[in-house]
Amino acid sequence: MWDEGLQTAILASGFGEHWGLMQLWPLILLPLAVLPWVLQDKLSFSHPALQGLPADPLSVWLERSWKVAASLFILALSMALTGPYLKSQMIEKVGRGAHVMIVLDRSASMNEPFVKKGDVQARLPKMQVARNVLKTLVQQGHDDLMGMVTFSTSPILAAPLGTDRAFVQAALDATEAGGMGFTAVARGLGMALDYFADQPVTGARAIVLVSDGGAHLDGKTQDMLRAMVMRQQASLYWIYLRSENGVSLKQSLGEDENIDAYPEYALHEYFQTLNVPYHMYEAENPEAVLAAVNDISKLKNKPTRYLEPVSRQDLSQYAYAMAWLVTAVLLGLTGLELKRWQT
């Protein structure tokens, strides 16, 4: 029965759920707080007739406050030693700068180099080039909120939209081309756009698509994506990592060419009809991509407030402050003690 009662009490208090203690052993010190109340007979001077002395209300109150202070001292310090903390708190932060979602292609073709011939420097896999470029992008915009989605057949959220740059870097380090050959551009973009959905439009929002090829989007997907982009008012930057034998998007196709044979080109045409700012950077070599990075880092935004979860909020400093305060009180009271009879 006791067990049950205790368990309900613990559940009701939210222990483990909303708050916790780092150490449990200091709790055994708590009972010591009764010591000032149960112990009798302080150091005293002998007096022939206590009845003869007048009652002194001030002294009685000083005595009581001394006991309270001594109790609090033990309580506060043992609580401080347990290290109480609140779990999963939200703290308010102010963000400036643009909101940038990176959408990175992780499909197998990203393993191929830009050109098949040439020295090792020139034959860097496209993935590595993209990674290096994005790293410079992540390092540059200091106030921007950034996040990253990677996709091959399906999108994966690698880093949520936030100020945590080091996390985006770590997610970038972890990316390697894999998965299947499919390039589900629409799903990747959709997931990235979803991250803007919970936040008010405060200024520049950018989607940075880094991919080496297009994908055919059917009419339904096209309409859905168009609606999403319009609603979120995000501008689109496409860093197109063009392979050696890939089609250039800058020249228009010849009359006799079938557009369906060039999904990149179809995608490029589609993006142009989105009615949002759209920039395409064609990167045949690593240097050309830096232009895109520079453009994106120029985006600015109004300051926005947003909530961010923190792992734990330490509460022990209040206990330490309390202990310090009562020690000061105890020191003061000890100083008031009589050292000898005064007449």
């Binding site: 999963s88 994966i156 959220l157 690698a158 880093a159 949520p160 936030g162 945590d164 080091a166 996390f167 770590a170 997610a171 380090d173 972890a174 390697e176 894999g178 998965g179 961010e308 979860p309 923190v310 792992s311 734990r312």
Partner: peptide, 23 residues
């Protein structure tokens, strides 16, 4: 698939927490 390389848990709690939640 390694989504994110090792990061310190307190400094990057928010991002880790959200990434796990989005799995």
């Amino acid at each position: 698939v390694n989504v994110v390389e090792p990061v310190e848990v307190c400094a990057h709690f928010a991002a880790l927490d959200q990434t796990v939640a989005s799995m």
